[in-house]
Structures are given as C-alpha cells and as structure tokens.
C-alpha cells in the first residue's frame, strides 16, 4: 500500500513538474509565426480563379486551414500541392480533376474590334486587370492578368480568348531538336 502511494505520489509530482515546465515553455518560447491561413495563402498562386470552389485564394486558404483537401488548385498544380502538403504535414495527393487540370499559363485576350464595351468582364476580373469604360473598348493588362478565366463567361459577345502565355524563359529542355544532313 505504501509503495503504491509512493508511486502515485511520484507520478503526480512528475505530472505537476512537467506540466509547469511545458506551460512555461509554451509561453516563454512561443514561436511567432504567420497565422496558418496567411501561410497557406502565400503558397496559393493567387489567380483568384475560383476553380477550387471558393471565391478566391484567401477563402480556399481558410478552407484548407479548416481541413479541406489541398488538391483543388489546378493553377498551382503539383508544385503547390507539394508545398501545401509540406506545410500542413499531410501527404501530397494528385490534383483533384473535378476542379480542372493543370494547364499551361494563359492570359485573357480581348478581340478588340468585337468588344462592345459592356464592362461585364471588368466587373468579373478579380484583380482589376481589364482596362476600359462603359461603351469603349476594353483591353487586358497582360502583366496583371492571372489567367483565371472568369472574364470569359460574362462576355456577351464572346470576344475574350484565353491565349497561352509565351514563356520567355527557355528551360534548357532537350526536346524537338531537328536532324540535319550535312552532305
């Protein structure tokens, strides 16, 4: 009986001591980190395209922080999923094709002679990358366009195309080298 009490007492003492140490440490050595949502948001590509089903990247970041899947972002693709997996400490999984496929980078292009100046695309653009006013031709600021696709649907005359962005960075890829005969 006595030994039992000693054991119990020791355990209780240990509990109190470690609890105190841990509590102290959690206050004293608190790591000041960005809130999780901010960190997630920083990893997302900020196209604000809504393909994930949320109205923008920030809302999706919030959703991920609350436990949503990390594989709903087609513009970010595998790279973003991997980074999110690292951050969230979960396994990376393939992109959920229900939300779209990873594609080459595109930007919106307005066929200007067909634009009627309805401003609908301007209202749709999440990053204000379309210039123009009512009843005058609109145009896309290519550098600001995230390629989110959201302006295409509202256009009443369908004069917006998504064109692949001409990638200026040659990646030393080894494909498509022609064979030449010399003599």
């Amino acid at each position: 009986m006595y030994t039992l009490l000693i054991a119990l007492g020791a355990l209780v003492a240990l509990t109190i001591i470690f609890g105190a140490v841990l509590g102290f440490a959690s206050v004293k050595f608190k790591v000041e980190a960005d809130p999780l949502v901010e960190q997630i948001d920083n990893l997302l590509p900020q196209t604000q395209c809504g393909q994930c089903g949320y109205p923008g990247c920030k809302p999706y970041a919030e959703a991920i922080a609350n436990g949503d899947d990390i594989n709903k972002c087609p513009p970010g693709g595998e790279a973003t999923i991997k980074q999110l997996a690292d951050l969230m400490g979960v396994d990376a999984k393939p992109l959920d094709s229900a939300h779209g496929e990873e594609d080459v980078k595109k930007v919106a292009f307005i066929r200007e002679d067909e634009c009627i100046g309805c401003t609908k695309c301007i209202q749709a653009c999440p990053v204000d990358a379309i210039m123009g006013a009512s009843k005058v031709m609109h145009t896309v600021i290519i550098d600001e366009c995230t390629g989110c696709d959201l302006c295409v649907e509202p256009c009443p005359v369908d004069c917006i195309d998504m064109v692949p962005l001409n990638d200026t960075n040659w990646k030393w890829d080894t494909l498509a080298i022609p064979v030449k005969n010399v003599n």
């Binding site: 030393w172 080894t174 494909l175 080298i177 022609p178 064979v179 030449k180 005969n181 010399v182 003599n183």
Partner: peptide, 11 residues
C-alpha cells in the same frame, strides 16, 4: 549519309 547529331547535349 552522314548527319549531325540530333541529340541536344548541354555543355
């Protein structure tokens, strides 16, 4: 027919 190499080789 002799030909140039069709392999891209990085230096």
């Amino acid at each position: 027919m002799k030909r140039l190499t069709n392999l891209f080789v990085s230096s």
